[in-house]
Design a protein around this nucleic acid. Structure first.
Lengths: 345, 345
DNA sequence: GATCGCACCTAAACCGCTTTAGTAAAGGGG
DNA sequence: CCCCTTTACTAAAGCGGTTTAGGTGCGATC
């Protein structure tokens, strides 16, 4: 009592397998009477074409893969991915595609890539020398990179990371801060150096700080979870020379850090100004609401999916210009405490 | 210059296709020397087995499907799914499975189901008479239902929806509220009636209200987005007899409603008490923090995935007992304004 | 020295579908 | 009446793997 296949339907309807296939895929090639009979029998028998067989035969699976550089349980804790998935999902629905989540198998993305039956890949935050990219070229599946440097073979979708970071740093400098801490994103996978997006943001922060002649910033690494943000606060220097403003590379870390700071008795923003990055929906809901750099995440997903679909159709596409970022000033930043006192007295 | 296949490797290494296949899947069946040669040639040529061919031949794709009853762009706006995906993802990683998101194709879940090349399905919030369930039986793929009533063929994972709702309602009653509004979840798909979970929560609210002899509650329908929650506030009666407490079936709607209420000049919780449902991480970060019913979403995902994997191994599994829910009291609920006045004066 | 077992490898069937090339019959034009 | 299109359908060759059922050759056994 195994699954009913095309041959079963064919013999039950007294036609060839070809006719059954036509009934589903090229109905106009069949006579009215036969078509109805075949469809009738197929439905009666509960026939559904086997997807893998179909994919093999048609060289197309109707699926795009999303290459996740971290564990699923980690990456979904960050609403960033949800936002991106909304953008990707919109385009997928429009084009009747399903999405396969491809996290590292046994820690290896390459292994996962080769096992995935997909027509194209969206890859998230891969560093350009990642061996996974090599694998993509090798099996000849089109890909679009997100938050990476463009590779010769694949277009990349990015936002103006540096510009946003610069605006954030300039904002706290304008408020009068001098001692600044930067919460750096951790490397995405076991490798030296930062992800491309992290590097660009760091460069943006530094550009503004250097230009203003601010002292060397403190740097602490933290993942994109609130818990990591809280730990980052603990790692910050607490002595006489302590940061009065924190530039975080993610809203999640910023929010966690804010919680830890408040638990430690600091008033936000009076004792510590905090700037996030991303402008996740929840950034507007914290107390105080988070000042942050907005990047158009959903739009980024849409654009990446659109480009990938183009490539899957055989067109060649160039990397688009980076999408814009903008500073959203809310309640988590103010002038540093000392300068307020100075003004007040 | 198409993709290199197993025959290419075989002839390049001077062996049969079988030998190449063995090299990857049953290395112990090959002599040391041959094994190394084959593997070497394969790597050199950049060979990777075609996933669809593999799936067809082995009758197993290494993928589980997640049946999404709504549009992807909608459903990912709700952090609920992210939480669930964390739980599912954990088990998937443990068992080297990938996850396929299966939203309705052209509005039809059945169509999407038959196209998905997966070894099992997790289905979210389907009503028991949904035609998609029928399709699942027909093609004989094991499935586990989440937030549905158990079907004869598939186990269901649920939480104690009614108990949580009852506790929420009892909480506001204990605080002294009488006029209560309920924000009902909308039907998941085009169909009459509510989703099973929504029905159970509604029953829980009503049980507590009836027992206390409270007047008939106002009911408003709202989807699980903050925008929908805000609209729900507008739909609430504003006159003399207006609700002093709102029981929402989701945190998202509750938070949106809270925002709209505050924009309208109400003080939360003094003028309006609000209770959510889910206890999403962000519920702790709103201002005031949201009183809500906690359900173990990640655990729900883990359990569902665990059961599905069991079923995929051929074991039969029973529906487990509902997971527990509990009320988390935070700052969005208090005694109604009038009764405070009464106490104060 | 024939027989057996074992280690190593292969031919061919099979998974379930799509699609090309082609056949048979019916219709139409000269 | 014959030839040429259409129309309606089919046989068989893929797609790219896995797996079953052997087939060698060699040393060990009797």
């Amino acid at each position: 009592m195994s699954r009913v296949n095309i041959a079963d339907v064919a013999s039950a309807a007294g036609v060839s397998k070809t006719a059954v296939s036509f009934a589903f895929n090229n109905p106009e090639k069949l006579g009215q009477a036969t078509l109805e009979r075949v469809l009738g029998v197929a439905h009666e028998l509960g026939y559904a074409p086997h997807p893998a067989a179909r994919a093999l035969s048609m060289r197309r699976s109707g699926t795009i893969g999303v290459l996740i550089p971290q564990r699923l349980s980690t990456v979904f804790a960050n609403p960033f991915l949800s936002e991106l998935m909304q953008g990707l999902g919109e385009l997928c629905e429009e084009h009747d595609l399903t999405m396969l989540l491809v996290p590292p198998l046994d820690g290896s993305l390459e292994g996962a890539i080769r096992q995935a039956s997909v027509d194209g890949f969206i890859s998230l935050g891969l560093s350009p020398d990642d061996r996974a990219l090599e694998m993509l070229d090798r099996i000849g599946i089109p890909a679009v990179l997100v938050d990476s440097d463009a590779s010769p073979n694949h277009p990349a979708v990015n936002v103006d990371d540096a510009g946003g970071a610069e605006a954030a740093a300039q904002h706290v400098l304008d408020l009068g801060h001098r001692e600044v801490a930067i919460i750096v994103l951790p490397p995405t996978r076991a490798q030296v150096g930062h992800t491309p997006a992290a590097s660009r943001r760091l460069a943006g922060y530094r550009a503004a700080l250097d230009r203003a002649g601010a002292p060397e910033p403190f740097t602490v690494t933290a993942g994109v979870t609130m818990a990591a943000g809280a730990r980052a606060f603990d790692a910050l220097p607490k002595g006489r020379r302590r940061p009065t403003a924190v530039l975080a590379m993610s809203d999640m870390a910023a929010i966690g850090l804010m919680a830890a700071a408040r638990t430690a008795g600091l008033k936000i923003p009076d004792d510590l100004s905090i700037v996030g990055y991303d402008d996740l929906p929840m950034a507007a809901w914290t107390n105080p609401a988070l000042t942050t750099v907005r990047q158009p995440i959903v739009e980024k997903g849409r654009l990446a999916a659109r480009l990938l679909i183009q490539r899957m159709k055989g067109r060649t596409v160039e990397s688009p210009a980076p999408l814009g970022t903008s500073l959203v000033v809310r309640g988590s930043t103010s002038r540093p405490f000392e300068s307020k006192e100075a003004t007040n007295t």
